[in-house]
């Protein structure tokens, strides 16, 4: 346990020292504030809906940015240390191998969570400053966006460790990480739409379609934030392909956790067998 915390602490300190934390926080805050301020233009500055608009904007931002940031943090975690020779030294210490991956995960997750909470939180602070009612029920959605964004980040961190454990070279890991990002964030939904159009909506049953949606962590995230709440569907229009998909928020949360646990477990399992 001590080793786990020591490694997590080391990652946090490293993130702080090499300015990663501050850069990520500023990036997320910059985008969140821009979207919030621009987003309030059509609805007027003081409106109940400006908060909802922000929630929708932030969740779209998350889908593009958070997986990218998480993969950048994690793709190097194992193979980079192998290549620099630091893993050899680390593993010569009295710790279990899962401590190494688990500690890195906790450290990177803390860094990512800090950047997300502070970055998106700044948008929330601006909204409060603009006079959005403090007990507006949509604050719950706002908090849910932040929380589930951290979960999405955790899923892509786990995927990144899996990539980093499998490859034999650092450059390969970087390539795969980019491919994974392109696939899950850009290509997947287009391919799914294309499939539906080509199919005319007949061949693919609803069950298959729903399963395909859950097979992408960013879609699970999207469903959770955009369709999971009453009133949200009206805003999201076509984004909510999911309008007819029937998932409870709890099951979507379960899927998000699955996207963390399975890759992380697999990465740990493979790492334990890896010959350094």
């Amino acid at each position: 346990m001590n080793a786990l915390m020591a490694i997590a602490g080391q990652e946090i300190r490293d993130g702080y020292r090499n300015k990663w934390i501050i850069a990520m926080t500023l990036l997320l805050a910059g985008f969140a504030l821009t979207l919030t301020l621009l987003g309030s233009a059509p609805t007027g500055t003081v409106g109940t809906n400006s908060l909802l608009v922000t929630v929708v904007s932030l969740s779209s931002l998350t889908i593009f940015l958070i997986p990218l940031i998480a993969l950048m943090l994690s793709y190097d975690a194992v193979i980079g240390e192998v290549e620099r020779g630091t893993l050899l030294l680390l593993l010569s210490y009295p710790l279990a191998r899962w401590h190494a991956i688990g500690g890195k995960f906790l450290g990177h997750l803390s860094v990512l969570a800090f950047a997300t909470v502070v970055g998106y939180g700044s948008a929330g602070a601006v909204l409060v400053f603009q006079g959005v009612d403090a007990d507006n029920a949509n604050w719950f959605s706002f908090a849910a966006v932040i929380g589930s964004s951290v979960l999405l980040g955790a899923a892509f961190l786990a995927i990144g460790y899996l990539i980093s454990t499998i490859v034999k070279e650092r450059a390969t890991a970087a390539g795969i990480a980019v491919a994974v990002w392109l696939l899950f964030v850009l290509i997947y939904d287009m391919a799914l739409l294309g499939l539906l159009v080509a199919d005319g909506g007949n061949g693919i049953g609803e069950t298959v379609f729903n399963a395909l949606l859950l097979a992408n962590p960013t879609d699970a995230y999207r469903l959770f934030n955009l369709a999971g709440f009453e009133g949200m569907a009206t805003f999201t229009g076509t984004i909510g392909l999911s309008a007819n998909a029937e998932f409870s928020p709890l099951s979507l949360l379960g899927v998000q956790f699955g996207w963390i646990i399975v890759p992380l477990g697999l990465a740990t399992w493979l790492f334990q067998r890896k010959e350094i």
């Binding site: 080391q10 090499n18 020779g85 630091t86």
Partner: peptide, 9 residues
């Protein structure tokens, strides 16, 4: 180890 390296910062 033969090639020893540490976090630079």
């Amino acid at each position: 180890p033969e090639t020893v390296s540490f976090p630079a910062n």
